[in-house]
């Protein structure tokens, strides 16, 4: 049995004492996992992501990422926020956005030649190398989303967490994104917050439902080993009958 990449045990979190946002969460995310995090607004999806990123600390319980605390493991996580939250007039190029992934390695935050190369390689990986010098705000929604994915890639982690990347993307951009994520999932764990279950189940192996408590549902046939691992503890299995077929599964 391999070690879980992200292991959450008995986690509780509340912004104010009498209204728990998350309670008794137990969750394992495995290497090569591809899961989407769904749930109603206010159910705690974003809170769960913030806890994994170490932006907030749990009231109870523990989160271990490759055995480390979230704050210590931050560099192994590539995080993709929603592109829509950025200032629509901020004068910055796509390359400058991606370069941010390489901050924090030096005191002044200057970028070395390797940093710039890593940023260009990452833009290449999302097929945007030729738009590196373009203003970020002049790009389409789908392109901006890919720039942010490139930024997450350039930081060199092995876990990719995306926050509602499909929000306000058209169907075609969404499909492109899906193809890209499937490609990236060959080497990275992909966790995606979304409210569109239909989209998620075509590619994702599991659905993590967050609504105060956390339940994990498989979306397609799982290997016996993975099922055994998943069924441990207080995990509850709910069939997603409406979207459970492995059709539309693309791994090319």
């Amino acid at each position: 049995m391999t070690e879980a990449a992200i292991a959450i045990r008995d986690l509780c979190f509340a912004y104010s004492p009498d209204i728990p946002v998350l309670s008794e969460v137990r969750l394992d995310v495995w290497p090569q996992d591809a899961a989407c995090i769904v749930g109603p607004n206010g159910g705690g999806k974003t809170t769960l992501v913030k806890l994994i990123l170490g932006l907030i600390s749990p009231d109870n319980g523990s989160i271990r990422i490759y055995g480390q605390t979230p704050a210590a493991a931050r560099r192994r996580i590539g995080y993709v926020p929603q592109y829509a939250r950025y200032d629509a007039c901020f004068p910055i190029s796509a390359l400058e956005v991606v370069c941010m992934a390489r901050l924090g390695s030096t005191f002044s935050g200057r970028y070395s030649r390797q940093d710039k190369q890593a940023a260009l390689d990452a833009l290449d990986a999302v097929s945007l190398a030729d738009l590196a010098k373009r203003p970020f705000t002049a790009l389409s929604g789908g392109q901006r989303q890919r720039v942010l994915i490139a930024r997450a890639l350039a930081s060199g982690g092995d876990i990719l967490i995306l926050d509602e990347p499909t929000a306000s993307l058209d169907r075609e951009s969404e499909q492109q994104l899906l193809g890209l994520l499937a490609e990236l999932n060959k080497t990275m764990i992909v966790l995606m917050v979304t409210h569109e279950v239909g989209f998620s189940s075509t590619f994702f192996k599991r659905i993590i439902c967050v609504n105060n408590k956390v339940y994990v549902h498989p979306t397609s046939a799982l290997t016996g080993e993975l099922i055994r691992e998943m069924y441990g503890g207080d995990l509850q299995m709910i069939r997603h009958d409406h979207r459970c077929c492995p059709e539309g599964h693309q791994h090319d």
């Binding site: 932006l55 910055i92 370069c99 941010m100 992934a101 390489r102 924090g104 935050g109 970028y111 930081s155």
Partner: peptide, 16 residues
């Protein structure tokens, strides 16, 4: 670079 990141995306800068 750090000031730029702070202004553009403070949360991400913190994560880095």
């Amino acid at each position: 670079n750090k000031l730029l990141a702070l202004c553009f995306d403070e949360e991400y800068a913190l994560l880095r």
